[in-house]
């Protein structure tokens, strides 16, 4: 039987990539129950993701003990280290041990680095999260005004120019753009460091400066997308009745867009932002390599090349958690912001 579903909420949701239509509260559905259901889905998603990661990594070829001891180590040394690292327990014990540990906040001990993984991940998140936020803010600071300007100058050279710029921005690989940025702003002009990261507690200013260029590299394609979405959203609302009414009341088109259009263009933009956070987090993995930032992505990379199973799976699940949590929060925000949904839920 086909669901007889009201699809008006869908009109503002992009039908692709993470728009959570399925989770939208239906008319008369209490908000708390909705949140609870989403929370449950969120937890189930994480559990399944953890299972997938574990199964994949459990099959992993390569012996971490052999890696640590290297090319000329004796079999006896390798076997001794393997036992010491607890690689002999059965798979299901190791899986549930891992999950139970994480719930307690204990991520285990890194095989190669021999320190608590929880601390390692926390250190890296102190780079990756701010970097993602930086990219997010930069993409909004760049993308939204440009989108607004383009919408206001619709059809004029400024609009065309900006949209060509946006097309190019989407098309440039971010790692390549990052390198070009470094050459200009770090090597030639020496305004900013070429990379590396000073811990926040040591010098917050230096830490911030270290994130600007990688943030820009990450932000460029996202800003371009935002500019396009913003422009389209604004162009759309300007065709709608309330703008026409406003203009009839004597406002210019720009004024009408400023006063009424922006608020209505907010929903599609919010959806994109939620999506972008997830993509930015993933994008950091590549960009961290260009700027030698000690982020979560580089941690995973190193751990993979060192066959540090416990570290790879814990770091990966944290990354997955970050993505899933963002989607979850976007969902919640969405229900709070959309006036229609609020009315329905009241």
């Amino acid at each position: 039987m086909l669901p007889k579903r009201a699809t008006n909420a869908m009109r503002h949701l992009p039908p692709c990539g993470g728009g959570r239509e399925g989770g939208q509260p239906r008319p008369g559905f209490p908000v708390t129950l909705f949140i609870l259901r989403r929370l449950l889905t969120f937890a189930a998603t994480l559990f399944v993701a953890a299972l997938i990661i574990f199964i994949l990594l459990d099959l992993l070829p390569g012996d971490p003990a052999r890696f640590i001891l290297g090319i000329n180590a004796s079999e006896a040394s390798v076997a001794a280290l393997r036992t010491q690292m607890g690689l002999d327990a059965p798979a299901h014990e190791r899986f549930f041990g891992w999950i139970a540990g994480m719930v307690r906040g204990d991520f285990g001990i890194s095989a190669t680095q021999r320190v608590a993984i929880g601390g390692l991940i926390a250190e890296r998140m102190a780079v990756t999260l701010p970097l993602t936020m930086m990219a997010m803010v930069l993409s909004m600071l760049i993308g939204l005004p440009l989108g607004i300007v383009a919408a206001m100058r619709r059809g004029k050279p400024a609009d065309t120019g900006l949209m060509i710029l946006a097309q190019t921005g989407i098309a440039i690989p971010n790692f390549w753009f990052g390198m070009l940025l470094t050459l200009v702003f770090a090597v030639a002009l020496r305004w900013l460091p070429t990379g590396g990261f000073t811990p926040w507690h040591e010098n917050p200013g230096a830490a911030f400066r270290g994130l600007i260029l990688p943030g820009l590299a990450l932000a460029l394609p996202q800003a371009s997308i935002l500019a396009r979405v913003m422009r389209t959203a604004l162009v759309d609302v300007t065709g709608q009745d309330f703008i026409r009414t406003a203009r009839a009341k004597g406002l210019t088109r720009s004024e009408a867009i400023w006063r009424h259009g922006l608020r209505n263009a907010f929903l599609p933009v919010l959806t994109i932002l939620g999506l972008q956070f997830a993509f930015l987090i993933a994008g950091t993995i590549i960009v961290e390599n260009v700027f030698y930032l000690p982020g979560l992505g580089r941690l995973i990379f190193t751990a993979v090349s060192e066959r540090d199973l416990t570290l790879v799976r814990s770091a990966t699940i944290v990354l997955v958690l970050a993505v899933t949590a963002t989607m979850f929060i976007t969902d919640l925000l969405y229900t709070l912001v959309d006036p229609r949904l609020r009315r329905q839920n009241a």
Binding site: P193, T194, G196, V290, F291, Y292
Partner: peptide
């Protein structure tokens, strides 16, 4: 720790 050659080149040139 800088594994990427291009990045290390830039860091040397910039005096980092």
């Amino acid at each position: 720790f800088i594994s990427d050659t291009a990045t290390l080149t830039n860091a040397l040139l910039a005096g980092d």
